[in-house]
Design a protein around this nucleic acid. Structure first.
Lengths: 215, 215
DNA sequence: AATCATACATACATGTATGTATGATTGCGA
DNA sequence: TCGCAATCATACATACATGTATGTATGATT
């Protein structure tokens, strides 16, 4: 086929990633063949092999395309010693939830990550990268909470480690459950009260020992 | 091959499901071939086709083998008007988390469900069944919480719907995150304080409007 | 004891995904 | 203007996984 201009080549590159998003989301990563992706993008497999090494490479680039901006956002807010850490954490969490509900691309990619792919060694270093990512996110959250304790926004007795684990579970659980059944609740509308209520609970109970015994 | 006694046949049936658990967990459902499962079980593919229709059938039976008991447990506790609904909910949630941490079979199957399979139409009616299951679990939780409000164990202003959604996200998020990286925290040991803290937070804040504005 | 049905192994045909090698056409630098 | 190299299509060889058809030997039945 004829040689294309660099911009045209870039367009087919993006078209392949867009098609991969759609096909991965419909049939799952394993059941999606490069032939499916190619026809969805309006090209042949040869075009894919010209831009990517294999399906794992397509997946990685598709993933990084939406992941890197989010990651930069999270990194930016945690390190500084700016005031009102609790408010910044609140804004960040609400933004993550609302963006998930509103941005179709982020929504599709997260849906693929949570429900349409298998975290096996076949996906290369993705699993290790995701675990490292989760560890970093936990660290950011813990630092946010620690700063909030230092500012007096949260009680001094707060177990920041446990609270960070719980908050991460809460947020990822909300996203995963909503993506699994979007009709079950309105994530965009509920994002602010859900996050606000959780942070308010941190201000009261504080993650210390349970207040009442079970049984 | 020689005909086996019914008990021996039952043993190979179970061996196939055990092998499927292991192979699904290692390589993911899509990448696991019936040949892999057969050799892991010490039989040939012919034996599998004698007991199951195809791979989806193997998956379904393997899933139902551990799922049905849990479901019955959840059903049993929610319907009656027994006293101390909050304490029963607490015990149930703690038991779910601790069983996940302790029972290898439940742990493997949940790991497959959360991270080693793709929720696509290829798995037959699994997705719809899971969504219906989640809806039922939300209903149970909402009823638990409603009873607790009626008993005065939770504040009258509690938004039971939102609290149930949040609690389901919290618990499933804890399970999914721990299965994804079991070294990140000790689910068995943290189960009681994590659940206890969440329920204590319900007693205080009550899931109403957020207590402080963001930004 | 003869017969049938069961439990499983073996073998084969089919479809399909993959990777690569090759070809055609043209943008772009010298 | 010439030629290189880039972009993508086409063709082909390979490898599996699947489903099914068939074979076989024995427990169960009358």
């Amino acid at each position: 086929m004829a040689r294309k201009t660099p911009e045209e080549a870039r367009q087919t590159y993006d078209a392949i990633l867009d098609a991969a998003e759609a096909v991965f989301c419909e049939r799952g990563v394993s059941q999606a063949s490069l032939c499916d992706i190619a026809s969805a993008a309006g090209v042949t497999r040869g075009a894919i092999y010209g831009h990517f090494r294999n399906k794992v490479d397509v997946f990685s680039r598709m993933y990084e395309r939406v992941h890197l901006p989010i990651e930069r956002l999270a990194e930016a807010g945690a390190d500084s010693q700016a005031p009102d850490p609790l408010g910044r954490l609140r804004s960040l969490l609400i933004k993550v939830l609302q963006d998930t509900a509103a941005d179709p691309r982020q929504r599709r990619v997260l849906e693929i990550l949570y429900h349409k792919c298998e975290m096996t060694p076949e996906l290369g270093a993705l699993v290790e990268r995701q675990q490292a990512l989760r560890a970093r996110a936990l660290g950011h959250t813990r630092r946010f909470l620690g700063n909030a304790v230092a500012c007096g926004q949260l009680p001094a007795g707060l177990d920041c480690e446990r609270a960070a684990v719980g908050m991460h579970a809460y947020v990822t659980g909300l996203i995963a459950n909503w993506l699994f059944d979007p009709a079950s609740f309105d994530l965009g509308a509920e994002a602010e009260p859900l996050v606000g209520w959780y942070l308010a609970a941190l201000q009261e109970g504080g993650g210390s020992a349970p207040c009442s015994r079970h049984r």
